[in-house]
Write a protein that binds this DNA or RNA. Structure first.
Lengths: 156, 156
DNA sequence: GGTGAAAGAAAGATAGC
DNA sequence: GCTATCTTTCTTTCACC
């Protein structure tokens, strides 16, 4: 992977903002011909800069307005404990992100749910049943101040 | 906003997975004519179910492989302190998410950066300069176990 | 909700710098 | 090596049933 030039970074910035903009408009915005622009996008895709394209659904509109951050500590960090736990996490439908952490807890999860009742359901049916868990600490988000799917490109 | 039927939920699920799939293919997948399918998508957009469409950039590929979760406590939660702080957060380019929290700390931020050195830069130039901050506690993610942009629809 | 026609966009081939 | 233009093909979008 070689460096991204300013045009590449502009393309990434614009498509992060609107993943459905037409190639013609994109080409216009970065001062390229449509074919040259499309070739750059394909190259960025092929070189692994792009994980995909997604519709962003409004969590609240589809009944999951509440975000809960859950710190989880395992009984051990042996390979099998970790594998079993992570497998369970990945298959939990309402886990929107999971990170192996430094610090007190081993994992941090973000869960989207239908209020405290919705969280109780997830806690009872998923979290408390996950293998190897020794401690669960939940913190509710009272409000989302900001949420960005895009990564800021340098110098843009 | 009335209920979403099974077809609406299928549409949302498919477009969350691939925000650029053609309307023709989408219509085919949900057994509708292209025009009927497009009408549904437009209705979902107009009714606020959809926040937008985005290209998902690979954080690591563009030089920001590291996620840091930052708990921030303010000196007070007066309206002006909160407003000034949140304004600063929203304008910090590497903050990928910020939530007002219950629990010990007032805010939880996720930051994407170029390793510990990158985080030090953000800490020095942004976080430590944010107004009203009394305490900052940073936890580094060692690995991303999973990350989902999509919301799970019921019964699909 | 479906059909069909017109407008528009994408993808590939070709030619020029 | 790169890019622009042209043409075919597919898709979107609209009016109408």
């Amino acid at each position: 992977m070689n460096e991204l030039d300013i045009t590449d970074r502009k393309i990434l910035t614009l498509l992060q903002r609107d993943g459905r903009m037409s190639n013609a408009d994109l080409a216009d915005a970065v001062n390229l011909s449509p074919s040259a622009c499309l070739r750059r996008v394909k190259r960025l895709e092929d070189d692994g800069y792009i994980d995909g394209y997604a519709m962003l659904v409004n969590q609240a509109a589809v009944g999951k307005p509440t975000n809960v951050f859950v710190e989880i500590t395992l009984r051990s960090l042996s390979e099998e404990t970790v594998d079993a736990f992570e497998h369970a996490v990945i298959n939990c439908p309402d886990v929107r992100g999971c990170y192996l952490m430094s610090g007190d807890a081993d994992y941090l999860l973000r869960i989207a749910c239908a209020g405290p009742e919705g969280y109780e359901h997830i806690h009872r049916n998923y979290l408390s049943r996950m293998p190897g868990v020794s401690r669960i600490r939940s913190s509710f988000a009272l409000r989302t101040v900001c949420k960005k799917t895009g990564v800021k490109m340098a110098d843009i």
